[in-house]
Amino acid sequence: MHDLAMGMPHVQRLEGTRGRPVYQVGGRSFVFFRNPRPDAADPETGERYPDVIVFWVASEADKEALVADEHSPFFTTPHFRGHPSVLLREAHLDRLGYDELAEIVQDAWLARASPRRARAWLEAHGLPSTPD
């Protein structure tokens, strides 16, 4: 996961609260490892998840597509209502294939990169630089 985030252009890794990594492009976070908080906890024990990763998404529709699938490891909490991001427990990274995780990281980067950087990256990868 870390290599994927650092593999995107113009990325800076910062040390967030409690030393948890924050990945930014142009000073804007696109992936970060969250500290345990009461809104993301085990429903049986109430113990806060210590390993939540936040990924930016491009839109509410993208967020809903990821969290609505009952087989998806992505989730959200009321704290993130209206926020363009999805959550994933680090313990569940193995539920994603490499290509799916790469796509999530790339999409997070694209959601936060400047339009010029996003266009350049898309063009370099032979992808349309404007939405279909």
Rank of each mutant, 00 (worst) to 15 (best):
38 P>L: 11
38 P>C: 12
39 D>P: 03
39 D>E: 13
39 D>S: 12
41 A>G: 00
41 A>V: 13
42 D>L: 14
42 D>T: 00
42 D>W: 02
42 D>Y: 05
43 P>E: 02
43 P>Q: 06
44 E>V: 14
44 E>P: 00
45 T>D: 04
45 T>Q: 04
46 G>F: 04
47 E>L: 14
47 E>Q: 14
47 E>N: 08
47 E>V: 14
47 E>S: 05
48 R>V: 13
48 R>C: 14
48 R>L: 15
49 Y>M: 05
49 Y>K: 02
49 Y>T: 02
50 P>R: 11
50 P>A: 11
50 P>V: 07
50 P>T: 08
50 P>S: 06
51 D>A: 12
51 D>M: 13
52 V>L: 03
53 I>Q: 07
54 V>W: 11
54 V>L: 15
54 V>M: 14
54 V>N: 12
55 F>S: 12
55 F>I: 09
55 F>K: 15
55 F>M: 13
56 W>D: 13
56 W>L: 15
57 V>F: 07
57 V>G: 07
58 A>Q: 10
58 A>T: 03
60 E>S: 00
60 E>M: 14
60 E>D: 14
60 E>V: 09
61 A>N: 08
61 A>R: 12
62 D>M: 07
62 D>E: 13
62 D>F: 00
63 K>S: 05
64 E>D: 13
65 A>V: 10
65 A>M: 12
66 L>R: 14
66 L>M: 11
66 L>D: 05
68 A>K: 15
69 D>R: 10
69 D>I: 08
69 D>K: 03
70 E>I: 10
70 E>D: 13
70 E>M: 05
71 H>Y: 05
71 H>L: 09
71 H>G: 12
71 H>I: 00
71 H>R: 13
71 H>E: 13
72 S>N: 00
73 P>S: 02
73 P>I: 00
73 P>G: 02
73 P>Y: 05
74 F>E: 01
74 F>N: 01
75 F>N: 02
75 F>G: 01
75 F>W: 04
76 T>D: 05
76 T>C: 01
76 T>F: 01
77 T>R: 06
78 P>I: 07
78 P>Q: 09
79 H>Y: 12
79 H>N: 01
79 H>E: 00
80 F>C: 07
80 F>W: 11
81 R>V: 08
81 R>I: 01
81 R>E: 11
82 G>C: 02
82 G>M: 12
82 G>T: 08
83 H>W: 08
84 P>Y: 13
84 P>A: 07
85 S>C: 15
85 S>Y: 02
86 V>E: 01
86 V>Y: 00
86 V>L: 02
87 L>A: 10
87 L>Y: 06
87 L>N: 05
88 L>Q: 13
88 L>F: 08
88 L>D: 08
88 L>R: 11
89 R>K: 15
89 R>Q: 12
90 E>G: 14
90 E>A: 15
90 E>N: 11
91 A>K: 15
91 A>W: 10
91 A>C: 09
91 A>V: 09
91 A>L: 10
